[in-house]
Design a protein around this nucleic acid. Structure first.
Lengths: 125, 125
DNA sequence: CGGAATCCGTTTCGATACTG
DNA sequence: CAGTATCGAAACGGATTCCG
């Protein structure tokens, strides 16, 4: 941490926080991450359940995004040391909070679905 | 439109609506699109103003995303036939509504910034 | 100035095969 | 079953150039 007086952060801290914010935003503002969060919801799902429910996601994208979400503290990963192994994912607080915004986005999509469809037809020009 | 009885949509309609919804969600759940929407806000901005304010966006990505947003009816594009030309972008109703969800997402990012940062440090394992 | 088009390196992504 | 590694194909994204 760079030196700073009282509660006023040094410029370096501001720009560091900004770039961190941008990085997090970029991590999270992506189709697969948001769909995974929405799918886990307030429950707990296994890897294979997620792969089945998040339509169209590949094995690779699922692990990749789950790692990212785990790294950022949005989900927990619980490994049950059985055979075959059983790995479960649950949203943590930050993940739940983000889910609220994803819910809104999904509602938005449903609400404007027909408007957007007609906008698209109109766009032929 | 495929045949249907009363208000009950045929299966084909449901899956068409679903795939449309997914398509729209994929269009919109992307870093640049969301940042552009957030930046336009409730104002009107020129192409060059947007390029300056949406940090790190290239000429190409900006036009590409603006076309997409225009096509989906989220923004209007107004061309003033002067020389040099002046093109302005404003959010339409659907765009404003989506902006509300982006605002939430930005607040989320700020609120959980430090939590996420410490989660990342903890992740070294 | 805004935008289309081109070129070209980088990243993403899916498929496949392999490990514990 | 969950995850890693590898390998092409495809999409993304930046830089540049030309046009209205």
């Amino acid at each position: 941490m760079t030196q700073q007086i009282a509660g006023i952060p040094a410029d370096a801290d501001i720009s560091r926080a900004d770039s961190l914010a941008r990085e997090i935003f970029s991590d999270v503002a992506n189709k697969w991450a948001l769909l995974i969060i929405e799918t886990i919801g307030d429950g707990t799902l296994r890897f294979s359940e997620l792969r089945d429910r998040v339509e169209g996601i590949s094995h690779k994208m699922l692990t990749q995004n789950l790692r990212m979400l785990e790294r950022n503290g949005l989900v927990t990963r619980t490994v049950h040391p059985t055979v075959p192994p059983r790995v479960e994912y649950t949203l943590l607080e930050a993940g739940q909070a983000l889910r609220a915004t994803v819910d809104l986005m999904c509602e938005w999509t449903q609400y404007y679905l027909s408007d957007i469809e007609s906008a698209r037809s109109r766009y032929q020009a």
